[in-house]
Design a protein around this nucleic acid. Structure first.
Lengths: 209, 209
DNA sequence: TTCTTATTTGAACACCGCTAAGATAGCGGC
DNA sequence: GCCGCTATCTTAGCGGTGTTCAAATAAGAA
């Protein structure tokens, strides 16, 4: 591993500037926040001129897309790990909790991920390897927990509802106005679990009206 | 009312540039989208120099705060109207639907509203008139529908869960990947209603596990 | 070696948020 | 009426941004 990982897209001068730019962007994002993520700053961080990135990305948005893609991969992994670590119906809550915790621990990256999704007007539905996306993992878990895969619309609706709840909670969990409630419940994780339990996560268990 | 509403902040040269700037910003937001909402563009739209806004707003963020504030007032009104038009338990779904429709019809404004909220790390909890905010309206509705106001944490959790679900749906409802589901359900509004019904909106009705 | 092509640079353009200095216009006191 | 006074607005400018383009450079092919 002489120059980190390279050799796949046939680097010329730099080694693998595309890779280096995405890494620099993630570094900036973590250290300085999303407002510091200018294309020029990324180039500076990677040690190249402001015009260099344009030979690897059409524009700034495409670089952000690449960053977002890595974010979705990380989220996938976190959710898969949480699912594997839990048993039975607790799997769903565990997945939701891992989702919200990922957003809490990577707020800038999470923002970039959803900005990209809004631009495309779609959530990523499959990873590069053809594997199921995080969204599909939630749906699969629903089926494993007893949702009828024949009732496709109901299954899809339950998945969407769960995803919406988790995303909303991820965006709102940091708001200060909930601090007293977290304290009353004994910490942040109990608070998150409590809200998740209030959401109608399980298919077929919603109130009839 | 000679020059629209004025006389409160004692305008000098322009009449009421502050008001005009917020209006110009809302006009730009609606016509050109959030990315076109630069402070200079707002000044241009209002017919003043790029430096003029700084005598009425500390910086760009403060102007956006003013725009966001008007957005929250509009959302308040929409939710209040929806609540008044529905009866019984349908009130909650009606409120949720009005929330999501507001976001759909004013996507750029909705974005500005939540950007401001994230900066402050809080949702607006009361309007200028001391009236209850949209968030409080949801909680009040929960009580009217039978939630026990004595169980304060449970009431709060239910309110948060409902708000999270509505916000998540508002952000996700426009994604193209749900088009086929909307079609299967007979349109967008049935789709929104279906997702809202899948969310655990009502306090005390969540599954026991 | 020479040719070709991918990569990177440096300079430039238009736009951005923001600041400072000066011009302008409405107000209160005389 | 006139005179400050102060709020308002403009002009000019700073450093930063995304993006383009011609020139320079370096790697591989012939």
């Amino acid at each position: 591993m002489r120059e980190s990982q390279a050799a796949e897209p046939r680097p010329y001068h730099h080694g693998d500037l595309r890779r280096a730019l995405v890494d620099a962007a993630r570094r900036l994002l973590e250290n300085e926040g999303p407002s510091a993520l200018s294309l020029r700053a990324v180039a500076r961080e990677a040690g190249v001129s402001p015009a260099a990135p344009y030979h690897h990305f059409k524009d700034k948005g495409e670089l952000l897309d690449a960053v977002a893609h890595e974010g979705w991969l990380m989220l996938d992994q976190a959710m898969a790990a949480a699912k594997a670590a839990a048993e039975g119906p607790a799997k769903l809550t565990a997945i939701g909790l891992s989702y919200v915790c990922f957003a809490r621990d990577n707020p800038a990256l999470y923002r970039v991920m959803y900005d990209a999704a809004r631009d495309k007007e779609a959530l990523p539905m499959e990873t590069k390897d053809g594997e199921d996306s995080a969204y599909c993992k939630v749906r699969n878990t629903m089926v494993e927990l007893g949702a009828d895969p024949g009732m496709e619309t109901d299954l899809e609706l339950a998945t969407i509802a769960a995803w919406c709840g988790a995303h909303g909670l991820a965006e709102m969990a940091g708001f200060r106005q909930f601090d007293h409630l977290k304290q009353a419940l004994g910490g942040e994780e109990p608070f998150l679990r409590a809200v998740l339990n209030h959401l109608g996560l399980f298919p077929g268990t919603r109130p009839a009206c």
